[in-house]
Design a protein around this nucleic acid. Structure first.
Lengths: 153, 153
DNA sequence: ACTGAAAGATCGCGCTT
DNA sequence: AAGCGCGATCTTTCAGT
């Protein structure tokens, strides 16, 4: 936490998270301040890195990416070299939307978006041919109940 | 997939995903077309729902949300009423960033962002007091290797 | 379907209180 | 720090290829 946020900063962040295409005037009106202070605050939030970027959210189904898997990965290898190769493989593959290194029994979890089960298998085969993996369990999402990157501010 | 995308649509989507704050001029130049057609395409993409929304991405650590858990949920109840209450609970809780209903052994997976382990326990206690859950396993993320909502277009 | 132009909105910033 | 206001820029529309 770089700096303390006040109530107005939080309102601004909430508005931007809800819809970043709003004009400065609209945001200013909603948070109950005028343009200049709001503009200065947004700039500060950007510069501090708290606002990392601005993007559009696409509908994966409409892009034909209808299958979502969560993949639990266990490895027997814990050397630096193996880890580097594994990480590189994950970063390079655009079907991998998230990858986390975990504490405990399971070493990694991935979120993977692909066209269908066949495409997942292609991904799986490609990955295990690149790096040795002890065990990989895929959990198939049947329904996305909730998906947000809206953080409580 | 509502409509077939051509190469220019894909380039536009890639640019918008990379940085939605770019001006129309910049995008037009990068995709090698002029403003008006780009503007018309973007509007079509919006109207079709392929572009769902525009938002800012915040840094969770800088907001003090330093703990990320993936939660595997098994339930013994499969009635509609139970499911409704569970879904409502998930949708209401802002620390739940993602929730998927799964095929197979594990019924649900959640992604939960909170301040610390204590905050996770608060969430956990609140949830199990609201709805009966057979088994819940939390996987603690040690490191976010990759996190993107950038879909391959 | 693209180009170019032009009206209107919005931004970014300096000046003032 | 907040408000005003102006020039510059960007968005959006439209007539003409």
């Amino acid at each position: 936490m770089v700096t303390q946020l006040d109530a107005i900063d939080r309102k601004i962040l909430a508005e931007l998270q809800a819809d970043a295409s709003q004009s400065l005037d609209e945001i200013a009106k909603k948070v109950g301040a005028s343009k200049t202070p709001v503009w200065n605050r947004i700039r500060k939030l950007r510069d501090s890195g708290l606002i990392k970027s601005q993007t559009v959210i696409l509908d994966p189904d409409k892009l034909g990416l209808e299958a979502c898997f969560f993949v639990l990965v266990r490895t027997s290898e814990h050397e630096k070299d193996w880890q580097d190769r594994f990480l590189t493989a994950l970063l390079e593959r655009e079907e991998v939307l998230e990858a986390h290194r975990l504490a405990g029994d399971i070493d990694y979890i991935l979120k993977v978006r692909v066209k269908n089960a066949k495409a997942y298998d292609d991904f799986y085969q490609a990955l295990i041919s690149e790096v040795k993996i002890f065990n990989m369990t895929a959990l198939l999402s049947m329904e996305e109940i909730k998906s947000t990157l809206r953080l409580p501010v």
